[in-house]
Each structure stands twice: as C-alpha cells, then as structure tokens.
C-alpha cells in the first residue's frame, strides 16, 4: 500500500484528488493539508511514501515546501501539481527534488501513474511537459548550430565572409549599421565564436558559405 499526503488549498480539488487516489486498491491517502506549513507537519508525523503537492498554495507555496522537505527524514517522494506547464517552474521543481510533475488538466489521467512511479523512485511528467522538454532539447542540439541562425543572420554572415563592410551590408539590406552589427553579434553568439576570424572559419566549416570564389571584387570595375 502506498501511503500518500495530499497538499492542495482548493477544497473541491483536494476532495476530488483524494477520491481519485482512494479509488485505487494500492493507494491510501493518510493525510490532507491545505497549506505548505501543514503539509510539512503531516510529513513529519505520518512519514508518507508520496506527497502530492500543489504548486500554488498559501503559507509556503509548493516550491518552498519542496525545499523545506529537503532536511526531513524519511523524506517522501513528491509529485507536483500545477495549472501551468511552465518550463521554468518545472525545472525548479525537478531541481528541488520532485519526481513527478502533473498539469491539472491531465490529473484524472495521469496522477495515479505519477504517484506509483514516484513510489518506485522513477520520474513521471505529464505528456504535455515531455513535449516541451523534447522541444527544448532539439532546439539546443549542437548539431543544429547553423539551424539556429535566422535567414537574415545567415545573409549577414555570408556577406561578412565575402568581404563586405558593415556599411555596405546595411545599405544592401536597406537597414542600419547598428542593426547589422547587432545581427553579427547575434550570429557570433549562436555560432559560439568571439572574433571575426573565427566567424569566417566556422561559417566555411559549416558550409554556410561555400569557398571564397564569390568574394567581393575590390578595386575599380
């Protein structure tokens, strides 16, 4: 039997959660709290296996309660409940030791699985959150260094490698020198280089600019 404490300030929601958890044969709700302080007291006195913790609560919100659980032994595994799939909150919750993160809209479908996973020490995230994390992961993948450049940044870098001056690039693209300089800085940050020579080298290596055949012709035409 998995022993659970539910901390949720909204009474109707808490009752619903308790009813849902109690409907499963292997789960038992041993305590209910409507604020963070009370939740910690229950953990100290009841030693639950798992705590279902709402992120928005009075008197220590979910994140603060989570941090305060740190020093308590035995420390229960925690499943966070939130209205939002906010990546920052998710990151903070997971870094502070939560194993599960369930958005409220999927609570009926996912809470039981999240609680069972937490008891076993495994992570459980709402399917929606997995999507966000996958998205971030793909966006940060170093293989796509070039992909990170916008069309305009690629164009600016190309023209820099071809030897055009900032003023010439700005005139050609009908924009200001200041904007071109900003785009050059943005491109350099994305390509992880800190000087123009490296920018040129990396652009050639990555195939953003092919060879130097089409370099700008200098001198009178």
């Amino acid at each position: 039997m998995i022993r659970i404490v539910v901390a949720e300030d909204h009474q109707l929601v808490r009752q619903g959660i308790v009813k849902l958890l109690e409907s499963a044969d292997d789960l038992s709700v041993v305590g209910e709290a409507d604020n963070g302080r009370q939740a910690i007291e229950l953990v100290v006195s009841l030693h639950p296996d798992v705590m279902v913790l709402d992120i928005a609560m009075p008197q220590f919100d979910g994140l603060e309660t989570l941090i305060r659980l740190e020093g308590i032994r035995p420390r229960p595994q925690v499943v966070m409940l939130s209205m939002h799939a906010d990546p920052t909150m998710i990151r903070q919750a997971l870094q502070s030791g939560a194993l599960g993160y369930v958005v409220k809209q999927s609570v009926a479908e996912e809470l039981l699985a999240a609680v069972r996973a937490a008891k076993n020490g495994s992570m459980f995230l709402s399917s929606e959150i997995s999507g966000i994390i996958a998205n971030n992961f793909l966006a940060e993948s170093p293989k796509n260094l070039l992909d990170r450049l916008s069309p305009r940044e690629s164009e600016v870098v190309k023209q820099i490698v071809e030897g055009y001056s900032t003023r010439e690039i700005a005139d050609g693209l009908r924009t200001s020198v200041k904007t071109v300089e900003k785009q050059r800085r943005d491109a350099m940050r994305k390509l992880e280089v800190d000087n123009l020579a490296s920018l040129v080298r990396v652009s050639l290596e990555l195939g953003l600019v092919i060879g130097r055949a089409n370099r700008k012709k200098t001198g009178p035409l």
Partner: peptide, 21 residues
C-alpha cells in the same frame, strides 16, 4: 481565472472521473 475557474474545472474533471469509474 486561475484561482476560481481553473480550480473549479480541475474539481469538475476529478468529479467526472469519479462518476466515470
């Protein structure tokens, strides 16, 4: 929206889930 409607809808989902089972 968050405190009232969001919470009530969560409660509604949970109640419907209980009815369903």
């Amino acid at each position: 929206l968050h405190d009232d409607i969001g919470q009530s809808m969560t409660a509604l989902i949970l109640t419907l889930k209980a009815i369903q089972s």
